[in-house]
Amino acid sequence: MIEVHSLAKIYGEFTAVRDLSFTVQPGEVTGLVGPNGAGKTTTLRCCSGVIPPTRGTVRIRGIDLATDPVGAKRQLAFFPDEPRLFEYLTVRQHLGFIARLYGVADYEARAQPLLDELEMSDKQDLLPGELSRGMKQKLVIACGLLHTPGVIFFDEPLTGLDPAGIRRMKDTMRRLAREGAAIILSSHLLSLLEEVCTHVLILKQGEKIADGSLAEVRRRFSELPDASLEDAFFKATGDDHGPPVITPP
């Protein structure tokens, strides 16, 4: 479970995130959406312990991230939008390295099914330079899931993936939620959130505009019974007309 209470991140005079509170229960996938500059990445980074919040508390499966960062981080995995790998470590060596950091004694037994699922079993001795972007993304996922995290953060997980990779990523997220992980997924792709998320949290200028189940948010921000998340998003963020249409001169 992820519990965020009164989270704030302030840079000098600028407030990136203001008094944010929400909870993500095990098995829930919460979509984090908002216009550019809404504070999505800052929120994700604060919740995953990458940067310290200015105020507020974040608890990961009941462990306070500020007082016991090591204990809290053992429970989570953070997947940034860009797969950053070590140039000279093969796929197998990446997993060995992560296993040592997280103390996963039986990592070889755990890694094999993961690699099988991600169709990487025959690529264990390849270096990142020999992998496609999708494969690199898969390796990052395998590394992140090796210690069976209960809390997972995804930042724009579909960037650069091909259609097959996108489908596989969506399936992975759904499976992890079924297995009881609490997931936060930040993306601009509202259709992806509609497909994968159970809940949604809309941010604007660092403040929470709405949160709740998908159905609740849709109901709250649109009168139409078949309104999409996109309709609700633009209504919630006060941009009913959506982005301007650009026509060539």
Partner: peptide
């Protein structure tokens, strides 16, 4: 420093 957003999530002091 380039990988700090990943390294920071490691459960290490």
């Amino acid at each position: 420093m380039q990988r700090l957003d990943v390294i920071k999530t490691y459960p290490l002091r």
